[in-house]
């Protein structure tokens, strides 16, 4: 952190600290590249089994060959939590973190934004969005949609 931030107000420090970065490996780079392009990509084996989180081998047919399909972004809340403590910059609290079951059948963790935490319930329909939460960097997030 630059020296001039050390004595500044907590709000300034919050802005200075980015969200934790994922570790990008040869196994998952396609996914994180997809997010920057506004796409939710899910790994698919040549036997058509979908895998998330992704990895190099299919547990069903043991193939190392795979492609990625473009998920349409629709899903439902399978579970969720509302984080309060400890508060970690730059997240806003309470922070709604959701486990989404995508219509394609796999589950994925993300945030649910633009919602009052007390209104969130398991089973609600949601849609993926890709807001630029930091300059030049997009994040996978979800928002509620009409039933």
């Amino acid at each position: 952190m630059p020296a001039n931030h050390e004595t500044s107000a907590p709000d300034a420090i919050r802005i200075a600290r980015p969200r934790p970065r994922p570790a990008v490996t040869r196994d998952n780079a396609f996914f994180w590249d997809g997010v920057q392009a506004g796409k939710l990509l899910i790994q698919r084996c040549r036997c058509e089994r979908l895998r998330h989180p992704p990895g190099p081998m299919c547990p069903s047919c043991h193939s190392l060959e795979w492609t990625a399909i473009l998920a349409n972004g629709d899903g439902r809340i399978y579970s969720f939590v509302v984080a309060h403590h400890p508060p970690v910059p730059p997240f806003d609290y309470p922070n709604v973190i959701v486990l989404i079951e995508l219509v394609e059948g796999v589950r994925i963790v993300s945030n649910l934004i633009g919602v009052d935490p007390v209104q969130v319930a398991v089973g609600m329909p949601v849609r993926a969005i890709f807001p630029e939460l930091e300059a030049g960097r997009r994040f996978l997030q979800f928002e509620l949609v009409e039933e």
Binding site: V24, D27, V81, N95, I97
Partner: peptide, 18 residues
């Protein structure tokens, strides 16, 4: 984040505050 399998595991959660 380091480009290892163990570190990549947490990448599915940390960017969202989990």
């Amino acid at each position: 984040p380091e480009p290892t399998t163990a570190s990549a595991h947490f990448g599915w959660y940390a960017p969202y505050g989990l």
